[in-house]
Design a protein around this nucleic acid. Structure first.
Lengths: 334, 334
DNA sequence: CACTCCCTGTGAAACGTTTTCTCGTAGTAT
DNA sequence: ATACTACGAGAAAACGTTTCACAGGGAGTG
């Protein structure tokens, strides 16, 4: 007999309903080979006891946990927050749970975290823009099933990504069409895949547009990185600056504005991502909108497909859309 | 013999090391009663096989999962994001995993979600500002161990909360000291505990300050709610408006600015929370800074204390600090 | 009336650990 | 030399479920 304090087990239900455990299990799981009358008795007994099957025990025997892990480099970054949000809601809608692991930008922790969380979940969605490709290639097989976000195509793992190169090109074209020829690019994470995509777009634009010059300035990925490079940016004489992301753009915007430089008349600034607050700076930020929530949803869909139908999803890329707001204008006349 | 495809089990390690399962288990768990030489052999065998104990099986026998659930009403809200961030990092630092459940403001789903996640975790941290107290009181015992965020004290469950009444009072005092006597309060979630705390602070201020009038206007909790009530706010003739939170304040700020009303010279606006972007609106927002990250950290500490030492934490409240920025000024002279 | 077949429900094994209990061996003391 | 202690290792039970293999019984058919 079970101690009264503990949660009721399947045995308790069986005893109360006067059947065997197996019958209870089948009845609860909707197995059609169980007599309706018996099923009725069982569900009644279960309801009376407030019985719910222990998911841990189920997981052990079934070999699946109904849970997936999401590894994110930085929960503070609005883009990753949006990805997590889209993913979490989509997974919940399908009856799955989400384990969230914030690697806090720690490259070493990232791997370990991914492996560790995989052990208690059915798969991991990996958002690791800075992890070296080689390391990633080693990691993915042990993580399978996995889904990777914002990386180049992988041999065996579905990738869901935004097309940063195209988004970047749209920004470049926008600035060029405004008349800018001397730009500055605030590079973020040097090792990140999305940074290299941006560089490709820049190289292509420089090759195609006569007289276009783009100075690359090392910066970070946060607001502070933007403020920190303000003087350096102004020193280049560029008439427009392409920030690595909206956060950096906002930092730069704030710093140059406080130096008395008007945006956009004296200097144009663009961001990237279109985070929720990009529309509310002054002036509001021209940026390339990355559909982060949808990225998360698609990542879940790719995972779900592997889990249920063990059907691999092809590479899926989504194109950011240029959002022109008030932070860009033609270069000053002088 | 195990099929080659599967992960190595404790039996495989035992076989390779030439010992029994029990010894492997003891060796891996650092049980001191195992001979150093044997332990050596076991760890070597484990390393060779790449063995890691199956956490699900461990959880079943140990009765703990090393995982906690966090139930959040809305992953889109920056304050909840910050709470989650603080919580997640603190829990990870202590070797725990975090299951995140976004109830998407759905009151019914909230309960079910909390109960369901509790079954696969060791406890749940509940952030449910709108759940009726009676319902909460029924729920908490079944969730135990639990920690509640931003609610009034509960009989058996630790509560970690920001003192919204005091924060509100500081805002009120700030506006009064600037000379404002006619205020508008944009009420957010009418059923939320923090709304009632704000109301108490308003009532107290009105009782103490001669001639102080505060009009309460129903609004929501998001940016759009702020824009939606702009005309209504202007219609009251109030010289300063206290928004439910920064999001609402930003919406209002945006709407009144686009109507040509200057903030703060014609109208003062205050927010609440001090979300990351409150400093970057124009003008930057005067607000009461809620230490959300720390709230999350403390919530984890309270949970951890229950889990390890089964020692209940007393009610813990943190006081928001007034951050005066550019969105408040003395009322217009006329 | 008897045999076979099918449908239901039961018993038992399995999932991969931890841990208690027990046993054997070696060392020490009388 | 014998007996007792102590310590380390193995066997087995337990965690709570699912599911396979089997048995029992009822019905249909020859």
């Amino acid at each position: 007999m079970a101690r009264a304090s503990s949660r009721p087990g399947i045995t308790d239900v069986a005893k109360l309903a006067g059947v065997s455990l197996s019958t209870v299990s089948r009845a609860m799981n909707g197995n059609p080979t169980v007599d309706p009358a018996l099923r009725e008795r069982v569900t009644a007994a279960a309801a009376e006891l407030g019985y719910t099957a222990n998911p841990v025990a189920r997981s052990l025997v079934l070999g699946r946990t109904q849970t997936v892990a999401v590894v994110i480099p930085d929960l503070e970054n609005p883009t990753f927050q949006a990805i997590l949000r889209g993913l979490s809601r989509a997974a919940t809608a399908d009856g799955f749970h989400v384990l969230v692991a914030d690697s806090t930008e720690d490259l070493d922790a990232e791997q370990a975290l991914a492996r560790a969380t995989r052990l208690r979940t059915d798969g991991v969605i990996l958002c690791a823009p800075r992890m070296p490709q080689e390391e990633l290639a080693d990691l993915l097989p042990v993580l399978a099933p996995a889904v990777v976000i914002n990386r180049d195509p992988q041999p065996t793992t579905p990738v869901v990504a935004a097309d940063y190169a195209t988004g970047m090109r749209e920004i470049l074209d926008h600035l060029v069409s405004l008349g800018h020829r001397h730009l500055a690019y605030l590079a973020g994470a040097a090792r990140s895949v999305t940074h290299r995509a941006r560089q490709r777009a820049i190289a292509a634009a420089v090759a195609e547009v006569d007289g276009l010059v783009v100075d690359e300035i090392a910066a970070g990925v946060g607001f502070d990185s933007g403020t920190a490079v303000a003087d350096q940016v102004l020193g280049t004489g560029a008439t427009a600056v392409i920030a690595y992301n909206d956060l950096v753009a906002m930092g730069l915007l704030s710093a140059v504005t406080s130096r008395g430089i008007d945006v956009p008349t004296r200097l144009s600034i663009t961001g990237f991502d279109d985070i929720p607050f990009a529309a509310f700076t002054s002036p509001p930020l021209t940026t390339a909108a990355v559909p982060a929530v949808e990225l998360g949803e698609r990542a879940w869909a790719a995972m779900h497909a592997q889990l249920e139908k063990s059907e691999p999803t092809p590479m899926l890329t989504m194109t950011p859309s240029l959002v022109v707001r008030g932070s860009t204008a033609p270069p000053p006349a002088d």
